[in-house]
Write a protein that binds this DNA or RNA. Structure first.
Lengths: 233, 233
DNA sequence: AAGTGGTCTAGACCACTGC
DNA sequence: CAGTGGTCTAGACCACTTT
């Protein structure tokens, strides 16, 4: 029943997935060891390994040396969503992109920012608030703080054509970071900039990034009312 | 400079990442072909392949047959976030979980639901609204519609101890789906259930799932005010 | 048509971990 | 200590794309 003609790791992946779905292997159940499966499918162990690894990465299998492979008790679904780069996001939705820098000054950063980035209180940072448009309509407000100590070059850049977002993506070798998504009520100021009503529910993304433990930037992006982030499972 | 003593695909992955970060290979630049890199690092092509594949999956490299490998122009960051299973989510945050079924009837589903799932208008579905608590405080309101044709067994289940969410995860072999995240203002009803104020910005997740093109369920989960979804990059 | 990445194999050794 | 998955290799063939 297993010996299909074409044996790719993907077909094995699919077959294992099928057996999990149809509860041939129920949650918590132990799977045959790799060698046995290789024998059953008539392929090499590497191929089995590849298929199983994908499933383990996806959170559907639990693999441990010596203990073997089991179907995860709680098949955690992981959604991989692409962090939107504003310009691409807007253009992907068919809009014409434009952005406007609202300020640019080096000042003492708010405690809220420095603490999130792990910088000492009272550190000076480059503040770059900006507004992004889609087809002329406000799309997103960006409140960005950059640590000039991490990227001195940024002090020289004019952000007229390139946004800070894009410049950083191209020039800051970002390696680690964390990100959070939330909902907030529009402040009067945000409402004004986003052509919304004060109190409107707005989708916000906040991101902090570091390079080798050196804080680079913290940015809070607040989207216009009605924004949705969408992805496949 | 490359011949380190221990050659794992991870060390090569790290080294390539380093070269991208330090702009040895700038965005858009072409990398040596796999065979050449294998020679440089003194390892087999498979190992190079593994390292490069991870980077390509992460969106940092662009690999195409015959065209070779390039550093992605727009290093898209992909965040993999785990879709929260309420109970685990609450418990992970240190709370005691409890849930309460608010209704359970088979009725004609709203057009909004049937159209999203691709079911015919006027189809009958099982409606399962529920409220989830953390330490006795309302945590999330769930508005779920299940297609009984896809899972007849669900009609027999009492959802007193197990939530529909958990039962489905265990029993519905979910294969495909889509999910969206948004911000909405609390309706009077939601405000009442979540101990919030009408108009409060609430974080909402909406998910639809199918098994082999058969619609299984659509669920809208609206979280209490202040909820954040967090992940690492 | 030719070049480059994608994948498979068979065998080997290693690293973790449960007994 | 012994069993199981993790990874590496060398070589081969295939699939996709660009020229």
């Amino acid at each position: 029943m297993a010996q299909n003609d074409i044996l790719t790791w993907q077909s094995i992946h699919a077959e294992i997935l099928r057996r999990i779905s149809t509860r041939v292997w129920a949650p918590g159940a132990q799977l045959p060891k790799d060698v046995e499966l290789a024998a059953e499918f008539g392929c090499s162990r590497s191929t089995i390994n590849r298929a199983m690894r994908e499933l383990a990465d996806a959170g559907l299998l639990d693999r441990r040396r010596k203990a073997g492979t089991r179907v995860a008790l709680h098949p955690i679904r992981k959604a991989t969503l692409e962090i939107p780069i504003v310009r691409r996001d807007v253009e992907a939705r068919g809009g014409i992109y434009r952005h406007q820098l609202l300020g640019r000054e080096v000042t003492i950063a708010p405690l809220l920012i420095t603490s999130k980035l792990g910088l000492e209180t009272g550190a000076e940072m480059l503040h770059l608030p900006a507004l992004h448009f889609s087809d002329g309509a406000p799309y997103m407000v960006e409140d960005r703080w950059v640590n000039p100590a991490a990227i001195p070059a940024i002090l020289e850049v004019e952000f007229t054509t390139t946004s800070a977002n894009e410049w950083l993506v191209q020039n800051a070798p970002l390696t680690t970071g964390d990100i959070s998504f939330s909902a907030t009520n529009a402040t009067a100021q945000q409402a004004g900039m986003l052509q919304a009503t004060e109190g409107d529910a707005l989708f916000a993304i906040e991101r902090s990034t570091w390079v080798d433990d050196v804080a680079v930037t913290n940015v809070r992006m607040t989207y216009a009312h009605g924004f949705k982030m969408h992805t496949q499972l």
